[in-house]
Computed example of a mutant assay.
Amino acid sequence: MTAVREKAAAPEDLARLFVERANAGDLEGLVELYEPDATVALPGGRTVAGQAAIRAAYEQMLARKPEFGAGTALPTLVSGDWAQTASRTDDGGARAEVAHRQSDGTWLIVLDRPFFA
């Protein structure tokens, strides 16, 4: 049976859900936050695209058991069904995402730069 997870009702929910799921080691829950063809920027300048590649990258990340903080959210920019979210991380870095509203009104990440200074 598939776990029923909270969906992002607003673009701002995505960062919170990411932190909660990453800290819980919930790989599939992380992948569910992304559109099927999403692109994620990884440390070292590498990018991955598509849920299978995102799953593989996050599987490696979660194996190290990192601890994520919520950070400080910056104002969200919304234009129709698109939104840009960003936050300052607790370690002085930043993260930014582009999200897309789905037909059911929830939001998923399309472009993600989770770690930059």
Results as ranks from 00 to 15, higher is better:
residue 73 A to V: 14
residue 97 E to K: 01
residue 59 E to I: 03
residue 49 A to I: 03
residue 54 I to K: 08
residue 10 A to L: 06
residue 48 V to F: 07
residue 12 E to N: 03
residue 101 R to Q: 13
residue 40 V to A: 02
residue 6 E to G: 00
residue 6 E to K: 04
residue 79 S to D: 15
residue 109 I to G: 12
residue 56 A to Q: 13
residue 23 N to G: 04
residue 101 R to P: 04
residue 50 G to R: 12
residue 15 A to M: 04
residue 38 A to G: 09
residue 74 L to R: 15
residue 3 A to P: 01
residue 8 A to T: 15
residue 21 R to L: 09
residue 51 Q to H: 11
residue 63 A to G: 11
residue 84 Q to L: 09
residue 111 L to H: 12
residue 103 S to P: 06
residue 44 G to Q: 05
residue 8 A to L: 14
residue 104 D to K: 12
residue 105 G to Y: 08
residue 15 A to W: 01
residue 30 L to V: 01
residue 25 G to A: 10
residue 60 Q to P: 02
residue 57 A to Y: 06
residue 111 L to N: 06
residue 50 G to H: 11
residue 20 E to H: 11
residue 12 E to G: 05
residue 53 A to D: 05
residue 87 S to F: 02
residue 46 R to T: 14
residue 5 R to L: 14
residue 9 A to R: 13
residue 48 V to Q: 01
residue 98 V to A: 02
residue 8 A to C: 08
residue 72 T to Y: 01
residue 31 V to N: 00
residue 51 Q to L: 08
residue 74 L to S: 09
residue 100 H to N: 02
residue 11 P to L: 14
residue 69 G to N: 03
residue 1 M to G: 15
residue 57 A to P: 10
residue 5 R to S: 13
residue 17 L to I: 08
residue 20 E to C: 05
residue 64 R to G: 14
residue 22 A to R: 08
residue 107 W to K: 08
residue 38 A to N: 07
residue 51 Q to S: 12
residue 67 E to D: 15
residue 32 E to G: 03
residue 28 E to I: 05
residue 97 E to R: 00
residue 80 G to V: 14
residue 106 T to S: 15
residue 116 F to T: 12
residue 41 A to L: 02
residue 80 G to Q: 09
residue 1 M to H: 12
residue 116 F to N: 10
residue 98 V to I: 00
residue 102 Q to H: 08
residue 10 A to P: 02
residue 57 A to L: 09
residue 90 D to A: 15
residue 116 F to L: 00
residue 94 A to P: 12
residue 87 S to T: 15
residue 79 S to K: 07
residue 98 V to G: 02
residue 74 L to P: 10
residue 29 G to I: 05
residue 103 S to M: 10
residue 101 R to K: 11
residue 86 A to H: 00
residue 86 A to K: 03
residue 27 L to F: 06
residue 59 E to N: 07
residue 88 R to L: 03
residue 81 D to E: 14
residue 106 T to A: 11
residue 107 W to H: 04
residue 8 A to D: 12
residue 45 G to C: 04
residue 48 V to C: 07
residue 116 F to S: 13
residue 7 K to R: 12
residue 54 I to E: 05
residue 89 T to P: 03
residue 91 D to S: 15
residue 84 Q to P: 13
residue 72 T to A: 00
residue 71 G to A: 13
residue 51 Q to F: 13
residue 12 E to S: 06
residue 12 E to L: 00
residue 73 A to H: 09
residue 36 P to W: 03
residue 18 F to W: 09
residue 89 T to H: 03
residue 58 Y to Q: 06
residue 107 W to D: 01
residue 92 G to Y: 04
residue 28 E to K: 03
residue 16 R to C: 09
residue 51 Q to D: 07
residue 26 D to C: 07
residue 70 A to H: 01
residue 111 L to I: 04
residue 9 A to T: 02
residue 102 Q to F: 05
residue 110 V to Y: 00
residue 28 E to S: 01
residue 61 M to V: 01
residue 53 A to Q: 00
residue 25 G to V: 11
residue 1 M to S: 13
residue 29 G to M: 06
residue 41 A to G: 02
residue 69 G to S: 05
residue 71 G to Q: 08
residue 117 A to P: 14
residue 104 D to G: 02
residue 76 T to E: 00
residue 94 A to C: 08
residue 65 K to E: 03
residue 38 A to H: 12
residue 41 A to N: 03
